[in-house]
Nucleic acid binder design. Sequence first.
DNA 1: TTAATATTCGACCGCTGATTCGTATCATAA
DNA 2: TTATGATACGAATCAGCGGTCGAATATTAA
Lengths: 193, 193
Amino acid sequence: MALSPRQIEERRTRQARIVSGTLSVYRSKGIEGITMDEIAKASGFGKATLYHYFPSKEEVITTILEDGWKSLWLEVSGVTLTGLSYREKLFNILKVLSAKVQQNPDLYKFLFKAPQIYPIVKSPDWESFQSRIYNRIESILKEGVEKGEFMNIAPEILMKAMGGIFHGLLLFGENQSTVHDEDLEKLMNQFIS
Amino acid sequence: MALSPRQIEERRTRQARIVSGTLSVYRSKGIEGITMDEIAKASGFGKATLYHYFPSKEEVITTILEDGWKSLWLEVSGVTLTGLSYREKLFNILKVLSAKVQQNPDLYKFLFKAPQIYPIVKSPDWESFQSRIYNRIESILKEGVEKGEFMNIAPEILMKAMGGIFHGLLLFGENQSTVHDEDLEKLMNQFIS
DNA sequence: TTAATATTCGACCGCTGATTCGTATCATAA
DNA sequence: TTATGATACGAATCAGCGGTCGAATATTAA
């Protein structure tokens, strides 16, 4: 018997509740503290019930990764770039990324930390979103360097350095005081040109 | 009965063998793959024997952290800074760090990754070495900014960004192609001034 | 030589955490 | 109203891992 629309809707709501419970466990107990018992407690279900909504813990994790990377990608892909200088293109992308990240830092910390700890996730769909983002940035860097708008250094290195700055500013340390667009822009401009 | 010098020496050798086995497990199986069974296999001892040389797994880990951070600090503290511009001071320090890190990337990846995963290591002696390094760099940044030699931005932010670059260039990704001093210098100069 | 100590190790113990079982209740289509 | 599936969950089960045990073998100070 097929599920009614309402039932499907409710299933989704409960899945979302579980996902959000998982993130709240992450927030309070760190990534090692994420156990099915804790997720159950935090999301208000019995432990066994979780398995009606996700086939495994891994699936909970990958759902978070996928939702997160996808939403970042949607943000990035929505940025209009036509008729802008490379510097502006780059900065516009970084700006939306930074806004998104700062609006829910724990989620985005999780996005970077989780894959280091649960290494071999089968069929990592989320990676495709991640690489779309990276590719878009990297190609801007590459063209910017070619056109002489950016400093003349191998684009891969530039990319790594950029990624590092982004990480350092937004995701490092406990108390990430908010980073303002002006600071970000200042640093990036300085860095890139 | 006290141990003879030779026995002490041999103990140390075996401890070193265990430490190095641990790092090789880390290299091949990642940080989650580090179990006492694996360490035993990799270092050529029976599991029980490990406990004659280290009281616990945690102690193996902290030994690695301590040795690593200490050796970084020794390198940094040996850099002469008198009579140099802030830019040169900074670059000289980064240069020795970079050399050290690139000469054994897995070890230094481990130095940064391990504390994220084994969070509450009692009496973390290694942290003192870490903070000595950070302090030395941060104070150069601070003075450089004050004296107007570096770009005018809050030194903490500069510090985070610097740390990020360093991470990004040297410790990120699987295939860290070697980063040459010239690139490092170019990036830093660009960035800082 | 011999008693004490150092060294070695596989098998076992206890715990933790993911997953499954068995069962009970609820909603709904026939 | 009743049979089927959806929902719920605490109690088992099972596996992996840190750490210990007990016994064997080597070394060495007397």
